[in-house]
């Protein structure tokens, strides 16, 4: 066949085509197309209920898409799991309380062919010192690093992390990400779901923003943050000139429909000032963009934590 002559191309680490997932009338995932190349570190950023976990379940073959396909290194998720190509750190649960940390890793190691040595993965996940502790006596952060150690056993080419630092204290989060970052240098493809913007920013090369089961932004952390910081300005303006509007400072998108204009911009004050002083525009309306709404929802509780923290710092001084 002609195909034989073609140099084999490495398939994407992860490829989703038109993936949808419905639970009855609930449309948890509404058509996701995504391609992640080997070696990328990608954050799946979105609020709770955005469909992140549902999507990760489909990547692992834990559930089947209602429509569309998911492939992992060119294989079905089930095959990829059986071969140890993909492994995951799940959000919570998944541990036996009456086994010790080392026994849990050992148990899981027996399930794979050619698993990495138990001592090695425990070292890399930073749990060597608690090897003999019963899982029931481990903190949330320790349990999460145990899950990470288990996920490292097959030496997966793709590692999925579902809200890996959920419920951890600051120290736990730092220790966890230190272990992940250290590991990522090996060239593994890593996809993690999070609703912390700062986590996505600090640890991902690429951020996929997901909301209500759809991808609403995809790019570098800086690009996505820039998208999120803008405002929308609406106005009624007769004879609007698209090119002039587009040339205004900070404007990245212009729509003109009959007499109404819509601008997406970074500096809404400057645009408003221009419209009021240089044109006959009226009915000016400035709104935070939907994306920013999403980010407020995403980062709101976190920002509040920080302000509480800085207040506390001031009190201490």
């Amino acid at each position: 066949m002609a195909e034989r002559d073609v140099v084999p191309r490495t398939p994407p680490a992860l490829e989703l085509k038109g993936v949808r997932k419905d639970f009855g009338d609930v449309h948890a995932v509404r058509g996701i197309d995504l391609r992640i190349e080997p070696g990328e570190i990608v954050a799946f950023l979105g609020p709770n209920g955005a469909g992140k976990t549902t999507t990760i379940d489909m990547m692992l073959g834990l559930s089947v898409p209602s429509a569309g396909t998911v492939s992992v290194y060119g294989r079905t998720p089930l095959d990829a799991v059986r071969l140890g190509l993909v492994s995951a750190v799940m959000q919570s649960g998944g541990l036996l309380k009456d086994l010790t940390v080392a026994e849990t890793v050992e148990y899981t190691a027996h399930l794979f062919t050619g698993a990495r040595p138990v001592d090695e993965v425990m070292e890399r996940a930073g749990i060597s010192l608690i090897a003999d502790r019963l899982v029931a006596k481990c903190s949330g952060g320790e349990q999460q690093r145990l899950r990470f150690a288990m996920a490292l056993l097959p030496d997966p080419d793709l590692l999925l992390l579902d809200e890996p630092t959920q419920g951890m204290d600051v120290e736990g989060r730092r220790a966890f990400w230190k272990a992940i970052r250290h590991d990522a240098q090996a060239g593994r493809t890593i996809v993690f779901a999070t609703h912390y913007l700062d986590e996505a920013d600090a640890y991902a090369d690429r951020v996929v923003l997901i909301r209500e089961g759809e991808i609403v932004a995809d790019g570098s952390a800086a690009e996505v943050k820039a998208l999120a910081s803008g405002r929308a300005v609406r106005a009624t303006l007769f004879g609007a000139d698209q090119a002039t509007l587009r040339a205004l400072p900070g404007v990245d998108h212009v729509e003109v429909h009959a007499n109404s204009i819509l601008l997406h911009c970074a500096d809404s004050d400057a645009v408003a000032r221009y419209l009021l002083t240089q044109t006959n525009a009226k009915d000016i309306e400035i709104t935070a963009r939907a994306l920013e709404d999403a980010f407020v929802a995403l980062t709101g509780s976190h920002a509040r934590d920080e302000s509480v923290q800085s207040n506390a710092d001031e009190v201490l001084r």
Partner: peptide
């Protein structure tokens, strides 16, 4: 689609007996 996709590790296999081990 290529019939033998290249992966980072080619020596992967599926455990015998579905993973049953003493």
């Amino acid at each position: 689609m290529s019939t033998s996709p290249v992966t980072a590790r080619l020596d992967r296999g599926v455990p015998r007996f579905g993973g049953f081990k003493l």
